[in-house]
């Protein structure tokens, strides 16, 4: 649809300034929140942010892998698939399945949705955002079919501990995020798989000529995103001790925003895993901060929508400068 934001390592002053701008934005945001609310900088609230951001971070890792492999095309189904996976885990648990089985089934549901996305994009040739939009709609439908469109309450000790508990005084979900992050960091930045993934997104033709199975890598990116959604779905179910209909859907904007923040942060035009983590922390902090300074919820999406436009516009201007440079 759009020209790929050049996976080459062209050094730019524009990228630097965009990076500084984003980091500055984050700093200003934190200072403003700290001034307006005495609660914001307390350790209790910071741990709260960590807990709230864990799920978003894992979703965002998946989003970034797709952004890398497709050269900047988003996976619009991450929030929908997260809800679907959540529906799977809660339905199975409520019907008496073991924790292990429920978790495996949720991961499988996420993976299968990702595989569907990948096939639609590579085999049938759909635009990624349309294919994933349709998948998202279907996943939401399936979630409602599983839960019969109503809220389901269920508490599982293991999943509750994972989502809300503490280990060594630190939220357990942080360990989960750290674990997933390390895997992504090693694979993306230190293996041939990661390099080939960047190559596929940067210039598919060249990657193909160099012998990379482009379709396979693209499909795998969507599968990984699906798997991440599966993990996030399990965490969501733990946080809510059950599931309310379409609870994940409102994270849609957050995931997109965090993903595109990570794109702006990168110097090479394609996002990286550190950027993904930062993007998630930024959006998580924003959500929390707006809540603690008591901005009515309906203005929150106004701020986030505006930020998406600002971030993506910065990206577009960067890209234009890069092309003319």
């Amino acid at each position: 649809m759009r020209k790929m934001p050049g996976g080459t390592s062209s050094k730019l002053s524009g990228a630097k300034s965009a990076q500084l701008l984003t980091l500055g934005l984050f700093a200003v945001m934190c200072v403003v929140f700290a001034f307006l609310s005495p609660v914001f900088l307390t350790s209790g609230n910071l741990l709260n942010i960590a807990r709230q951001t864990a799920m978003l971070a894992i979703m965002c890792f998946g989003m970034v892998v797709v952004l890398i492999a497709t050269g900047g095309e988003a996976d619009m189904s991450i929030a929908g698939v997260t809800g679907f996976a959540s529906g799977v885990v809660v339905t199975l648990l409520a019907r008496g399945a073991s924790t292990f089985v429920a978790i495996v089934a949720a991961l499988a549901a996420g993976t299968a949705s990702g595989l569907l996305n990948g096939m639609l994009v590579t085999k049938i040739g759909l635009l990624p955002f349309l294919a994933t939009l349709a998948t998202s709609n279907m996943a939401q439908g399936l979630e409602q079919v599983l839960t019969k469109g109503t809220a389901v309450a269920f508490s599982d000790p293991f999943i509750a501990h994972l989502a809300n508990g503490d280990t060594l005084g630190i939220p357990t979900s942080l360990f989960l995020v750290l674990g997933v992050f390390l895997v992504f960091y090693v694979v993306l930045d230190h293996t041939g798989i990661g390099r080939r993934l960047y190559a596929v997104g940067g210039n598919p033709q060249v990657a193909r000529m160099a012998g990379v199975d482009v379709d396979m890598y693209k499909t795998m990116a969507f599968v990984v995103a699906g798997l991440c959604s599966g993990i996030a779905g399990i965490v969501l179910m733990g946080r809510l001790s059950g599931l309310t209909p379409l609870a994940a859907t409102h994270m849609h904007l957050d995931v997109l925003l965090a993903g595109y923040v990570s794109t702006v942060l990168s110097t090479v035009g394609a996002p990286g895993i550190f950027g993904a983590l930062f993007g998630a922390v930024l959006v998580g902090t924003l959500t929390n901060g707006l809540a603690v300074i008591r901005v009515p919820t309906f203005y929150v999406n106004l701020v986030k929508g505006l930020l998406i436009i600002v971030v993506v516009a910065a990206n577009a201007i960067q890209r234009r400068r890069r092309r003319s440079a």
Binding site: G305, I308, I309, V312
Partner: peptide, 10 residues
Amino acid sequence: FLATLGVHSM
């Protein structure tokens, strides 16, 4: 799709 998504949520 990104521009109109932003406007949509705003």
